[in-house]
């Protein structure tokens, strides 16, 4: 049984087709690349999975359950975590706090315990911060733990966002252009990190990326979108040879 099953997904904005009858499946432990020219509907697809958008037609099943009736926060709590193309960080908070906010939903006590600062609530707060510190360290961000994220360079902000997503113990990780704006060395490191997360933690990854080097080295399979439609799907080698893909890319250039 695939981890994610997308069937006949369609969505249009003000009459403009953003996604049209897209179907594909993601197996547990796979790294799937989502590529296509600008405006192909890649981010829209990710937004449908994380329930920021409601599709007009079609279904998304995760662990064999329908996602359409759930809210964004429920989907996140079930183990679908993500990063954003244009960064959606808590800008007025520190790195540590950003990561902590990614996991506090797992540390719940009753509201009354929180309001009266009962021991259970305080233990919870300590526990959450401790776990956040661990993740901050794992991602090599300890040096910046108490710095406001807005003050970090762009590349490090992307890393914080990834750390925050990791804080949710994701089963499925959605990465929207993780290597955008990075130099060759940095993108290579991103690719390595993604690999490592899959190999060591068994996380399934669906990533959008324009950097073909990253996509071709890291992905097991690739899905190609163009004008909201799926035009190809296959291994990196197959995609490289696909005439439809070549046409979509060259036709645009």
């Amino acid at each position: 049984m695939p981890l994610v099953e997308i069937a006949n997904l369609s969505l249009s904005f003000a009459g403009l087709r953003a996604l049209s009858n897209v179907s594909f499946a993601v197996e547990t432990g796979e790294i799937i690349g989502l590529i296509g020219p600008n405006g192909a509907g890649k981010s829209t697809l990710l937004n449908c999975i994380s329930r920021i958008y409601m599709p007009d037609h079609g279904t998304i099943r995760f662990q064999d359950r329908d996602l359409n009736s759930r809210t964004a926060s429920e989907v996140a709590a079930e183990g679908i975590r993500r990063t954003f193309q244009n960064l959606e960080l808590f800008r007025e908070a520190t790195v540590r706090e950003n990561v902590a906010l990614g996991l506090i939903y797992r540390y719940r006590t009753s509201l009354l315990a929180e309001l009266f600062a009962l021991p259970s609530a305080r233990d919870n707060q300590r526990g959450a911060l401790k776990e956040a510190d661990q993740i901050v360290a794992e991602m090599g961000l300890s040096e910046w733990a108490n710095v406001l994220v807005a003050e970090l360079p762009y590349g490090s902000q992307k890393l914080v966002e990834l750390a925050r997503a990791m804080a949710g113990h994701p089963k499925l990780l959605l990465l929207d252009e993780p290597a955008a704006g990075m130099n060759r060395e940095e993108s290579r490191r991103v690719a390595e990190t993604v690999r490592r997360l899959r190999d060591h933690k068994g996380i399934t990854v669906l990533l959008i990326e324009h950097d073909m080097r990253v996509v071709m080295t890291v992905c097991d399979r690739i899905v190609v979108l163009d004008h909201g439609e799926k035009i190809a799907e296959g291994t990196p080698a197959e995609i490289r040879r696909s005439p439809a893909v070549v046409k979509a890319y060259l036709g645009d250039a």
């Binding site: 904005f13 937004n47 920021i52 958008y53 409601m54 193309q85 959606e88």
Partner: peptide, 11 residues
């Protein structure tokens, strides 16, 4: 509202 479609959030 009575006349408009459900709004979607823009990221």
């Amino acid at each position: 509202g009575l006349f408009t479609r459900e709004i979607v959030k823009k990221v």
